[in-house]
Design a protein around this nucleic acid. Structure first.
Lengths: 211, 211
DNA sequence: ACCTGAACACCGTTCAAGT
DNA sequence: ACCTGAACACCGTTCAAGT
């Protein structure tokens, strides 16, 4: 089969002195998003890139390190999506709502990737400090938004980190229920719950009128 | 090694005509709670019970079926814990708060078990309808409580299922953040966030005064 | 420097065979 | 009915060897 050989050779050449690390990462993300984490095997990734199944060890310590990097990159694009929504909607309460919607949208669009980012987070984070940093960055985007809301008297003057953790828990909870398939049947649509949650959330963290 | 043989024989006899299914289930839960889902291998479970590694297939279709049953039993004790807290605190708002605290407490006490219950729920649920029923039962305990709060004018007169989904998302979010190790460092203690979340939650779902 | 191929110690699952 | 043991097709990882 010269045709197949030829194609493999082309692939091979392009990574042989190209960025195999980058290619491995992208292939991993592709597999995870399409088939889930369990479907990710180092052997398959290697085969798809036309590379031996152990070539990966030149670029990552082990499979866990690969997953940690996948999670790290996930947090980076996640943060960008959140900030984009916040800025795009002109900040303030509208920005806050847009950010919440963007949060859930990201999780629903990339459920498996999202799960890698949050599942058994601690173990991966201690092994890869940069992952912890990226995650903190995403969280910080939320804190920043809340601080601004507080300055404009649009949110309660509680500790902003405490407030942010609460908000995070709410959207994280909605996202997890959504991607784990718990939102089925009547009155369990994701968008409906997201809107409702953000509305009730706003009411829960709103600044008291008497203040 | 006659001593070891003797002990194995005793073990063997007790399950040989005993309830191996039950024993397998309990051993699985024990391993999951102690070492996590990934550490659960059919071979180890069999070895620990002094039984061949394929004996399990007489009682469960496969490993997934075992996990689905583990999840199902988890939902049962989970529901009981929630109802206990609700009733024990005399229902009403105090009962609602107790139920929320009990929710997070259960997840923190059995993180791996909790993860099995909620992780990739849909696939397991469709394979095991009884699992879906138990999960719905736990959810229903929450709906029932909210309906009662509404009757006493202690909660907004929204659709109780929508309200329940929101509340569920909040406590599920707090629980997930807690067991995934995201609540570390200053002002990230679990109890503090739980209390804060329930308080803000109450404020978010409270009945409007003008009603 | 980067990659390969054989080898190792694990998996879940199947199935003919035992009692 | 219930359980076993060998066998199969998979894993991640290691390591000597190639270029």
């Amino acid at each position: 089969m010269p045709l197949k050989r030829g194609r493999a050779a082309v692939r091979r050449r392009s990574y042989h002195h190209g960025d195999l690390r980058r290619a491995l990462l992208e292939e991993a993300v592709r597999t995870i998003d399409a088939e889930g984490v369990d479907a990710l095997t180092l052997r398959t990734v290697g085969r798809r890139l036309g590379v031996s199944r152990t070539a990966l060890y030149r670029h990552f310590a082990d499979k866990n390190a690969l997953l940690a990097t996948v999670a790290r990159e996930g947090f980076r694009t996640f943060r960008l999506a959140l900030v984009d929504a916040w800025v795009g909607a002109g900040q303030g309460l509208a920005g806050f709502e847009a950010m919440g919607a963007a949060y859930v949208r990201f999780a629903v669009a990339h459920p498996s990737h999202y799960r890698v980012m949050f599942g058994r987070f601690l173990e991966k984070a201690t092994a890869d400090p940069e992952l912890g940093q990226e995650a903190s960055g995403a969280f910080q985007a939320l804190v920043d938004a809340l601080v601004q809301l507080q300055e404009r008297k649009l949110a309660r003057p509680d500790d902003p980190r405490q407030l942010a953790l609460f908000v995070w828990a709410v959207v994280h909870g909605v996202a997890m229920l959504a991607i784990d398939g718990q939102l089925r049947g009547p009155e369990r649509d994701i968008d409906g719950l997201t809107r409702f949650a953000i509305e009730r959330l706003n009411s829960g963290i709103a600044a008291p009128r008497s203040a």
